[in-house]
Design a protein around this nucleic acid. Structure first.
Length: 228
DNA sequence: TAGATCATACAGCTACGTTG
DNA sequence: CAACGTAGCTGTATGATCTA
């Protein structure tokens, strides 16, 4: 059956009740079986488990055959411009350390696939205690509800030696975080555009970027966004 | 065309300043 | 003064591209 991202969230969190449940990772070679206590593989395995859960519950989805490219899942096999779903997970004790998207590829992809702006992010936080993985919380968010400003750029990015690599999330669930997420997709686009003006590598060729994205978005959705 | 290197995608660690 | 948040970093996998 076909579900929207929010119906899926409802099924997983409210009906199935995944929050508070625990799991573990066991690895076996020959007659020796061990419990994995490192966190490296938790994210991958949660996603793999989720895929099995979709199948078990007869939820329609298409998995991206190239696991490296965006997005992880398509919930609407008939229309690839809708139902884009990214799955993220993080260690609740460490905070969200994942990246929302690669800065350059995301900016470029919006020029021709502006509907990606409306992709849903399904986020699972876990806590690992002595090999037992507890699901602490689950969120369903849009990118502008995760991205936020920062002190260096209008958009929080992962910068390495003055080179921007990734768009990074705020600590959206915390009341103490200084930088709060944006309030709308327009605010997010504006921050992205202004970051491109401020960033030396994109500064001089940014002239038509925003207008092209807005035009492409209108072609796909019929909605003309107004960005200050 | 095989092997090297780059690019893109993923994740986690930690120093240090801030703050409740 | 412990906990939190930010910023900057390390690390792995793999597809794409370059080059000898």
């Amino acid at each position: 059956m076909k579900l929207s991202a929010s119906q899926l969230y409802d099924a997983l969190v409210n009906d199935y009740g995944i929050i508070g449940e625990t799991g573990n990772i066991k690895f076996t070679v020959k007659d020796l079986s061990i419990l994995i206590k490192t966190k490296d593989s938790v994210g991958n395995l949660l996603q793999e488990w989720l895929k099995a859960w979709f199948t078990e519950n007869s939820i329609d989805f298409v998995e991206n055959n190239n696991s490296q490219s965006f997005p992880d899942f398509l919930l609407n096999p008939d229309d690839f411009t809708k139902g884009l779903l990214e799955v993220k997970s993080f260690d609740f004790d460490r905070g969200p350390g994942f990246d929302l998207a690669n800065f350059d590829s995301y900016c470029n992809s919006l020029l021709t696939h502006a509907y990606r702006l409306d992709s849903d992010y399904l986020i699972l936080s876990y806590q690992m205690i002595d090999g037992q993985i507890g699901i602490k919380n689950v969120w369903l968010k849009k990118i502008w509800e995760l991205a936020c400003p920062s002190s260096t750029y209008p958009l929080k990015v992962q910068e390495k030696k003055n080179v921007i690599y990734n768009i990074r999330p705020s600590v959206w669930y915390s009341t103490r975080s200084k930088f709060k997420p944006f309030n709308s997709k327009e605010e997010f686009l504006s921050a992205l555009n202004n970051t491109r003006y401020q960033y030396p590598q994109t500064r001089f060729k940014n002239g038509h970027w925003l207008n092209k994205v807005l035009k492409n978005y209108e072609e796909y959705t019929g909605e003309m966004l107004v960005v200050e």
